[in-house]
Amino acid sequence: MPSPPAPLPPELGRTFHYGEARARGASPRRLRAGDLAAPHRGVRVRVAEVGREPDDPDRASRIGHAVRQRAEAYDVVRHPDAFFVGRTALALYALPLERLPGEQLSGDLLLSGGAALDVGVFAPQRAPRARGVRGVQVRPALATLRSVGGFPVTSPASTWALLAGELDAAGLTRLGDALVRIPRDERGRLLPDHRLATMEQLRAAADVPRRRGRPALYAALAQIRVGSASPLETDWRLAADAEGMPEFALDVEIRDARGALLGIADAAHHGYRVAVEIEGDHHRTDRAQWSRDIEKHAAYVAAGWEPVRLTAAHIRSGRATILLGDALRRRGWIG
């Protein structure tokens, strides 16, 4: 039976530089042992601590956690002037990726470690070349940087604009919706300081001279709205717009005649008194959520609203616009 590897020097963390380990007395043989991974030249990571994901079922959060661990490993050998861009930046911001073109596959690869990290430098520096890294050279005028979890990352608006070379207008719209969304806390209060970007910042990023993909960016800017809580909601909204339906307000507080808050609808049209709720699978599997939904929708009806409940299957099959159109016509819409 093989003996377990010798203990590593206690000063070494989960991720460490090969040279540091050697300087602290670890042998080359010990640093080749199976309990260590070598994601990049000169880097070692304790395998037992790789891939521990949070219990959060949200896919974007799990991808973000996996990418943060990989970024931490690369940070050991990252040039001080290098920064994270592209899909790596999106993951570090915990933005939803799976509804961007091709992202179902890319998201799986980001989780598994099969996709390279996107790492940029400003010209005239040469793009980094290393195992597990896709190097990108960026003109300084095209991006600004910020720190995310201690990592240098292109700003949300810069990241969005730089992806115009890879995403179509629909993908840029989904991403833009996620960036300008104003989150709410657990009590439903808006947190404007927590949103990642404003419409003005997105437009300024698109307007930078010699910006690649400017037509797609401008097309997306015309479609981006504040209030979509998920790419699925963006898909519903774009489909409804394409069918010529009246524009709905997003992320709407529904109140009764006395002003008491009944709930926060994903979308609502005050003129026709139609409220739209787009429900993920947790609305079905979480009993407490299911009970709250039943009570909330009953309160909507009592207050004179007609709730339209839509699922991913409705939206992706095109049936969502049929259901919504029926509700609007019952309320007097002619379309």
Rank of each mutant, 00 (worst) to 15 (best):
I294C: 15
T321H: 11
G171H: 00
E253A: 11
D281W: 14
A169N: 02
P10G: 07
D58S: 12
A302M: 07
R59F: 12
A298F: 11
A265N: 02
R284H: 12
R225I: 10
R41P: 04
A242H: 11
L190Y: 09
R331P: 06
A164E: 02
H79Q: 13
W236C: 13
A197T: 05
P128A: 01
A267G: 11
R211E: 00
D81M: 10
P4T: 07
G86R: 08
L167R: 00
R331G: 09
P9T: 04
A302Y: 01
H282P: 06
P246L: 09
R331K: 07
E306H: 10
A267F: 06
R134W: 04
A303D: 10
E72H: 14
E20A: 14
F248D: 07
T154M: 05
A115S: 15
R287C: 06
G42M: 02
D118F: 04
L105S: 15
E186W: 05
G271W: 08
R195L: 08
V133K: 05
G25C: 06
G318Q: 09
A205S: 12
G227E: 04
T154A: 10
A130L: 09
A275E: 01
G114N: 11
R309Y: 05
D118C: 09
A239E: 13
R44P: 01
V301C: 10
A205P: 06
V121Y: 02
A89T: 07
M245V: 05
A48D: 15
A73N: 00
P80R: 14
R287D: 13
P57T: 02
V153C: 02
A161E: 03
F151P: 02
G113F: 11
V308Q: 04
R214W: 03
D81A: 14
L191H: 07
A299H: 06
S27E: 03
A73L: 00
G227N: 04
V276Q: 11
S3E: 13
P192N: 01
S112N: 10
R68V: 10
L328M: 07
Q104C: 14
A73T: 00
W305V: 03
D56A: 04
A60Y: 01
I224P: 06
L191R: 13
E186C: 03
E295A: 15
A116H: 14
G135P: 00
W290A: 14
A60D: 06
A89R: 02
L328S: 01
E20P: 10
D281L: 14
L111F: 08
D193H: 15
P54T: 07
Y93E: 09
D256P: 06
A143M: 06
P96K: 05
T88S: 11
G13L: 10
E186K: 06
G34A: 14
P152D: 01
Q69M: 12
R212A: 11
G227P: 03
R29F: 05
L95V: 06
S228H: 11
H270Y: 08
L202Q: 07
V301Q: 12
A229I: 03
Q69D: 14
R187K: 12
L109T: 08
E166A: 10
V148H: 04
V226D: 09
L12Q: 04
R316Q: 15
D326P: 08
A204G: 12
H269F: 00
V85Y: 03
E49P: 11
V50E: 15
L36M: 07
M1H: 13
R287L: 14
A170L: 13
A143G: 10
H65K: 11
K296T: 15
R211P: 00
R99I: 08
L232H: 09
H79A: 13
S158E: 04
E72Q: 15
V208A: 04
W236I: 09
